[in-house]
Design a protein around this nucleic acid. Structure first.
Length: 315
DNA sequence: AATGCTCCCAACCGCTTCTAA
DNA sequence: CTTAGAAGCGGTTGGGAGCAT
């Protein structure tokens, strides 16, 4: 099989794209679609490899890309999704319309990760650092036990929904991300009906994408409850009642207004008083074994969820 | 003004996954 | 079933901008 020598050809340009190149690429794709990326540069008259063209298009030139700083809501969502999906940036970006995986990856590596560390939370596990070090974990935390519950529920859901799953369009390239699939499934009417079907059961045993993640890559500690809240949020444009919600906060340098501290920001003294536990609550909501609190959120109303999220995570 | 340092982000690299023959 | 080609993905890097000294 081996790697194809896509960019090894001599005479192909590398490095930053010139505006003229962008224009050529945009015009070509507008006219013809990208078709085969490999043949695109030749057909469009670009001295680039197909891979480079694809990257440039998907990460920068695509018209539906939302430029500009991430909102607080988006940042929250990234953190939540990362706790579930790990470094699966494509799956995460699928939940943030207009954001690319590269952008989210950069945000995580340059800002969010540091912020979590700063708050005493291990960005890998999304659990608080312990005195024994960041990697020390309790052998069987409540969260872990919940994961097992979710996993069994997921298997049940998979069997139940296997037929309905065909309703979803396969991934363009057939490379359907499993997690993405579950996220979509969970957000769909199918997921809705599944939740209703299991309404009589303990909320904690409902199928959730979180369990899928646990089975695939890493076992995040985020609860299904918070996942649910965030997924609902992601599906709406509901604004939370954060006082400075409009404040765009991308880099640590611009985060002083709403009290979000950055890695190199020493001016966020307000956050010194901010309860880290509140943030932790967001990341690991069901601390006890009983998830019956979920039942309080009939239909998981957006307003309720937003209020709840704001309350537990006043970022 | 010059220099060094840090941060950000666009782009690249190489591996994995999927499809079609 | 096997294999080659193509695309997607995540990790990493390098250069530029901004800030501090």
């Amino acid at each position: 099989m081996g790697r194809t020598p896509c960019c090894d050809k001599k005479g192909l340009k590398k490095g930053p794209w010139a505006p003229e190149e962008d224009e050529i690429l945009i015009n070509y794709i507008k006219k013809n679609g990208h078709g085969s990326w490999r043949s695109l540069p030749r057909l469009a008259g670009l001295l680039r490899c197909g891979k480079s063209c694809r990257l440039r298009w998907t990460n920068y030139l695509r018209p539906d890309i939302k430029r500009g700083p991430f909102t607080v809501e988006e940042e929250k969502l990234v953190i939540q999704l990362h706790s579930i999906l790990g470094n699966r940036w494509a799956a995460i970006s699928a939940q943030l319309p207009g954001r690319t995986d590269n952008e989210i990856k950069n945000l995580w590596n340059t800002y969010l990760k540091k912020r979590l560390v700063w708050m005493g939370i291990d960005p890998e596990t999304h659990e608080p650092f312990t005195s024994c070090g960041p990697t020390t974990k309790a052998p069987a935390s409540p969260a872990t036990r919940h994961m097992a519950q979710w996993e069994s529920a997921r298997l049940e859901a998979e069997a139940r929904l296997s037929r309905e799953s065909l309703l979803f369009n396969p991934h363009p390239h057939g490379k359907s991300s499993e997690s993405d699939y579950f996220l979509r499934l969970w957000n769909s009417e199918v997921g809705e009906s599944f939740r209703k079907l299991n309404g009589g059961q303990k909320a904690g045993s409902q199928g959730s994408p979180v369990s899928q993640a646990s089975s695939s890559t890493k076992c995040g500690s985020v609860s299904a409850a918070t996942m649910e809240v965030c997924l609902k949020l992601s599906g709406s444009s509901t604004q939370t009642s954060n006082q400075n919600n409009d404040t765009k906060c991308k880099t640590s340098k611009s985060c002083t207004e709403d009290g979000i501290a950055g890695s190199d920001s020493s001016s966020c003294s307000e956050l010194d008083d901010a309860p880290d536990t509140a943030f932790q609550l967001l990341l690991d909501f069901p601390i006890n074994d009983d998830m019956s609190f979920l039942e309080n959120f009939d239909n998981y109303g957006i307003a309720t969820s937003s209020a709840m999220l704001t309350e537990i995570c006043p970022l």
